[in-house]
Design a protein around this nucleic acid. Structure first.
Length: 520
RNA sequence: GGCGCAUUGGUGUAGUUGGUUAACACGCUGCCCUCUCAAGGCAGAGAUCACGGGUUCGAGUCCCGUAUGCGCUACCA
């Protein structure tokens, strides 16, 4: 049997990171076992679905490197089939027409309404599932429908017995039929509802494993009833623990804003592999006792064993290590602090991104930096031509202390442009504090210009010699130089910076009057 | 209200069939390195394994109960 899994988001907003993780787990599983990963857009709620959202979902998956097989499916295209299937169930007596007029509900009060109704029914001793139309004779039902009376279609759920299944993550699940109401399949306006559409589409797509959020765990029993009504084989289910906000509330787009949107991470300079790596470790971890032979996939090379503390996994490595039975049950908290720019998202995600930026192969990093510089109008074609070697060296120097790709155009701006800002605190601490520097720095520029060839080593020698002669500490000149050349108080080793910026630019910036002009 | 699921340091997780001082990563503190800041190295703080019972010579690991959180309970998805 070929494994077939799907990611089935509804296009009602940007891609939620919880949804992105569902997609990732589906994808990892498919790639691991050589199955198919399909994408289906659940756009049956036409009022809330947008093309823009569909686009952002596809872009998001592409950004994460999750390629899907076969054609993209839009659920709305199948609505006629879903309607027909529901009607067939009526004919077969497995579902019935409910002529009860539709209740009008405000979206907000829905939850409270459910509770209130349940309490009222319990108090009055009414079976919450009782429906006067459940046992309406077929010919009477047909007649009323033919007369044009509106009706919804409900599944006729058995009164006794129970439904059970084994969830790959949560284990044995069972639910008495008495707990399941006669769910509506088709709205009175003919609109097919979620549970019906999902099941029918999954059957048609030949889905073998349904991997989705835990919020669907109890719904699964209803869906199994539908599989049985359609005499279809029931797939395996694996429900994923939810991702929660720091206060353990549901992580929602509405309440928590852009931090839950996948596109935010792209736009704020995350490396896709880093975010994918982080996401994979939310609710899943590799088996630390596995041996190399067991994690080899196909004819790929044997990989080394896991080392304790090993958490940086390439795409290939994730595929090798992934397994559904290592997904765990308790929800994960996505730890971020609203209103704190330093901790705008999970610290570990930020750390992991920095780790990728400083250790990934430069052949992979360079194009990302290029895109970033280009978007900030800092890119020059020479960086890929005459100056490609310089560019690579520059990036390898400054990447060491960057956290996101954005840093290349912000903190790294002075390496690519003369138009950079001086940080006031840096100027005050490293330059204005010592008046002599106004004369010393231009003199230092003179000395550096004599260094031949102009390298980190020769620049260091020249600077140290000059500091001895001028009877000042080398550190004074070094820190002042850093601020003169980059506008900042922190950065790479100063002599490396001299070499990267080169003789002319270094000397020119050391002679600049800007710090005195701008901050006196 | 009913049903279901979960509960290991601040966060993410490890903890094989119950067996000595609960492990790792991020974050935090200090020291080293040093021209700054990172990185790196070293050291450290932080968990009565939600709580209460029980089984056992012995429980984070098994059983029961309680609490808390979350989910479902819609002619939403």
């Amino acid at each position: 049997m070929t494994v077939r899994v799907r990611f089935a988001p509804s296009p009602t907003g940007y891609l939620h990171i919880g949804a992105a993780r569902s997609a990732l787990f589906n994808w990892l599983f498919a790639r691991k076992v050589g199955g198919k990963f399909l994408l289906r857009i659940e756009d049956t709620d036409l009022q809330r679905s947008t093309d823009e959202s569909t686009r952002s979902i596809i872009e998001g998956l592409e950004w994460l490197g999750l390629d899907y097989d076969e054609d993209l499916i839009f659920q709305s295209d199948n609505a006629d089939k879903h309607r027909a299937a529901a009607k067939k169930l009526v004919e077969e007596g497995k579902a019935y027409r409910d002529f009860t007029p539709k209740e009008q509900r405000e979206d907000k009060s829905v939850k409270q309404g459910i509770v209130d109704r349940a309490r009222a029914h319990a108090a009055e001793g009414i079976d919450h599932r009782s429906n006067p139309f459940r046992d309406l004779p077929q010919d009477e039902s047909d007649a009323r429908a033919a007369a044009g009376e509106p009706f919804a279609i409900r599944l006729k759920v058995a009164r006794d017995g129970l439904s059970r299944f084994t969830d790959i993550v949560y284990g044995e699940q069972e639910r008495a039929h008495s707990e399941i109401e006669d769910l509506v399949l088709l709205r009175s306006d003919g609109h097919p509802l979620y549970n019906l559409s999902v099941v029918l589409d999954d059957i048609e797509m030949g889905i073998t494993h349904v991997i989705r959020g835990q919020d669907h765990l109890t719904n699964t029993h209803k869906q199994i009833l539908l599989y049985q009504a359609f005499a279809a084989e029931v797939p395996r289910f694996a429900h994923l623990p939810l991702i929660l906000a720091p206060n353990k509330a549901k992580l929602s787009k509405r309440k928590h804003g852009e931090v839950v949107s996948l596109t935010t991470y792209r736009d704020r300079g995350f490396v896709p592999a880093a975010f994918r790596n982080f996401l994979a470790l939310l609710g899943w971890s590799p088996d630390p006792t596995r041996h190399a032979a067991e994690i080899t996939v196909g004819d790929s090379e044997v990989q080394p064993n896991l080392e304790p503390g090993d958490e940086i996994f390439s795409q290939q490595r994730l595929i090798e290590l992934f397994s559904l039975d290592r997904i765990h049950k308790s929800p994960a908290v996505f730890n971020f602090q609203e209103n704190d720019p330093r901790h705008w998202t999970d610290d570990k995600a930020l750390w992991m991104n920095a780790e990728y930026i400083r250790t990934m192969p430069s052949a992979e990093l360079l194009p990302m930096v290029k895109a970033e510089l280009r978007s900030e109008k800092l890119w020059r074609e020479e960086y890929e031509e005459d100056e490609s070697e310089w560019f690579a060296q520059c990036i390898s120097l400054i990447r060491q202390r960057f956290f996101t790709l954005k840093d290349f155009s912000s903190h790294g701006r002075a390496y690519f442009s003369e138009d950079f800002d001086f940080e006031e605190a840096a100027v005050r601490k490293n330059i204005l504090k010592e008046p002599k520097l106004k004369e010393l720095l231009p003199a230092l520029a003179d000395r550096l210009e004599l260094a031949e060839p102009f390298t980190a080593t020769s620049a260091e020698a020249a600077l140290r010699a000059f500091s001895d002669e001028a009877s000042v500490k080398a550190g004074l000149l070094i820190n002042a130089s850093r601020t003169m050349l980059t506008g900042q108080a922190v950065g790479p080793s100063m002599f490396e910076v001299f070499e990267i910026l080169g003789r002319e630019r270094s000397a020119m910036r050391l002679r600049s009057q800007r710090p005195w002009n701008e901050f006196q």
